[in-house]
Nucleic acid binder design. Structure first.
Length: 219
DNA sequence: CTCCGGATCCTCT
DNA sequence: GAGGATCCGGAGG
């Protein structure tokens, strides 16, 4: 299903942006599509235009419990940033080798976030390629959550840092683009079902990560 | 093209 | 002690 979102507006000050991000993560997630997250380091700057995201909700929402969320069973040392203010990063380590990055959403205490699943490197392509030497084309430099985190050099050391302040920058598009939505990827149990269509992407964008549809067994 | 397994270790039970 | 919000390369169609 393709939906046209409401106007986001160019309210680009960190305060305005943080207020916007303090809303419902399921509503914020599509608004982040087309936004640009940049990270300046000594190596240089890499900026990624976000093309695919997923919303993860906090505990305490009895109407929409989210068993797929890292905060489903409450606060831990790892997920603590998700309980903090909106606009900060939540970065976690998984599968023994990969990092994935989220933008914390919702008012402090609600522990929701938006996972950055894919994007297009729009600045610092050479540096991104140095960080991801196995990349075969400009399209797959950040076409996956772990790939995106690697291209931006985000690790758990960045978890809890403010994405709306140096050395990071987040810019929203002047006008929100149309988007599609569907079930989240890699989430087992109810959280991965069609009842949780909290994955959002820019339809037709070739940097969107390849979606492996559930294997259908013949009858 | 699709499918499948290995890598590799942090996190929470 | 089990499993994971993944990626990559190799085998086979």
């Amino acid at each position: 299903m393709t939906v046209s979102s409401t106007h986001v507006g160019p309210g680009q000050s960190p305060e305005q942006l943080r207020d916007l991000l303090a809303g419902d993560a399921r509503g914020i997630a599509p608004l982040l599509l087309g936004s640009v997250l940049s990270h300046a380091s000594q190596e240089g700057t890499v900026a990624v235009r976000i093309t695919e995201v997923e919303a993860y909700m906090g505990p305490g929402d009895s109407l929409h419990p989210d068993p797929g969320s890292h905060t489903f069973r409450g606060q831990t040392a790892r997920n603590a940033p998700m309980f903090g203010p909106a606009g900060h990063l939540y970065v976690y380590f998984t599968y023994g080798m990969h990092y994935c990055a989220n933008i914390v959403c919702g008012p402090a205490g609600t522990a929701s976030a938006v996972l950055l699943r894919a994007g297009e490197v729009v600045e610092g392509r050479h540096l991104a390629l140095v960080r991801r030497p196995t990349s075969k084309s400009a399209m797959d430099l950040a076409s996956g959550p772990a790939r995106l985190a690697t291209a931006l050099a985000l690790t758990t050391a960045d978890s809890g840092r403010d994405a709306l302040a140096e050395p990071f920058e987040l810019r929203l598009p002047v006008r929100a683009p149309a988007f599609s939505s569907g079930p989240r990827v890699g989430v087992s149990g109810d959280g991965g079902s069609a009842d949780y269509p909290w994955r959002f992407w820019l339809p037709g964008d070739c940097t969107v990560s390849r979606y492996k549809a559930a294997k259908v067994r013949p009858a």
